[in-house]
């Protein structure tokens, strides 16, 4: 609105008047702009800020089922946090979260990049096959998780059947403490590859073909082309893919809970499943410590999330 007025008032005589009109026009423009934003602001306050506030409040009080419903839970300060830090589950859960996240990321990214490089030169069927690769990412997580559960079943699973065909002994994928974490990592890698493939593929496509042609003229071989051109030019997209993957992997809960419930005996418990188990997984819920674990998870996710936003902003400016 202010644009029309600005261009429509070139005459010097009209300047004083147009200044007044412009400022009132701008003000009514601001009113309209915020009227359109009002629903989302209200939404964010009610359905984001308020639940998060309740979550912080939960973590600072000692709740029982009774006081949860009726109110009046005593203030506990950082007692729940102290309890969580002192818990025997804390160390292993932190370690599992780190291993789960890093191993998943490395393989999702590595496989995704290899596939993106494979698909970037078109060949017959390439578009169709690339589309099919999206399937694991689009399936509901409960579907993927329950399919993997049955595939990894110790007695009747197809994975152990294939292993025995190769002459390898059966592995208790989901029921042995040594393997449970690796089983959920394998399933999570499978789910995450498509996302990495799609994003890295679009990053590869953005590299101009001219650069490769020039390198070919200069006699660069395939390996040189990868390390000297593709790798450096793909670094911005890679950084964003990895950081976003990090934030998303930290909060993975469904797959682990459906496949192992964090067990056996806590062998695949991460912060996300631990928080859920404390709050919802037992007959007697401990909301306070559960919320405390959840808030620790938020801090971790947001720390990396802010790094992501910084990197993205810097790239947008560059």
């Amino acid at each position: 609105m202010s644009d029309t007025i600005r261009t429509a008032a070139p005459a010097r005589a009209a300047r004083a008047r147009s200044g007044r009109v412009r400022s009132s026009g701008a003000r009514s423009g601001q009113w309209a702009a915020w009227a359109f934003l009002a629903p989302v602001v209200l939404y964010l306050l009610l359905f984001y800020a308020y639940p998060l506030f309740r979550n912080v409040e939960l973590s600072l009080r000692t709740y029982t089922v009774r006081s949860f419903v009726q109110g009046g839970a005593p203030f506990a300060g950082f007692g729940n946090y102290a309890k969580v830090f002192g818990d025997a589950t804390f160390g292993p859960a932190l370690w599992h979260t780190v291993v789960f996240t890093l191993v998943s990321l490395v393989f999702q990214f590595g496989i995704g990049l290899a596939l993106a490089l494979f698909f970037v030169r078109h060949f017959p069927l390439s578009a169709t096959l690339r589309a099919l690769f999206l399937v694991p990412w689009l399936l509901p997580l409960i579907v993927s998780a329950s399919t993997w559960s049955w595939m990894l079943n110790s007695d009747s699973g197809v994975v152990n059947a294939a292993l025995s065909w190769l002459g390898l002994g059966p592995v208790n994928w989901l029921t042995s403490p040594d393997w449970a974490l690796w089983s959920v990592i394998i399933a999570n890698i499978w789910i995450g590859v498509p996302f990495n493939l799609v994003v890295l593929y679009s990053g590869l496509q953005a590299i101009p073909a001219v650069v490769y042609e020039a390198a070919a003229l200069d006699g660069a071989n395939g390996r040189q082309r990868f390390w000297r051109i593709t790798f450096p030019l793909l670094r911005p997209v890679s950084a964003i893919t990895l950081l976003l993957g990090l934030v998303y992997t930290l909060k993975v809960f469904d797959i682990i809970w459906i496949m192992t419930k964090g067990g056996p005996s806590g062998a695949s418990t991460t912060f996300a499943t631990w928080s859920y188990r404390l709050g919802f997984g037992n007959l007697v819920p401990s909301f306070g410590p559960g919320a405390a674990v959840g808030n620790l998870l938020i801090v971790m996710a947001l720390a990396f999330g802010l790094v992501y936003i910084r990197v993205q902003r810097r790239q947008a400016l560059a």
Binding site: Y48, Y50, P51, L52, F53, R54, N55, E57, L58, F68, V247, L250, K251, F253, A272, S275, Y276, G279, F280, F287, G290, A291, G294, N295, L297, I298, A301, L302, G305
Partner: peptide, 14 residues
């Protein structure tokens, strides 16, 4: 970026 499980706990209380 906020994990769903944390939103779930807040929503549960509300």
């Amino acid at each position: 970026m906020i994990p769903g499980i944390i939103m779930a706990m807040g929503f549960y209380a509300i």
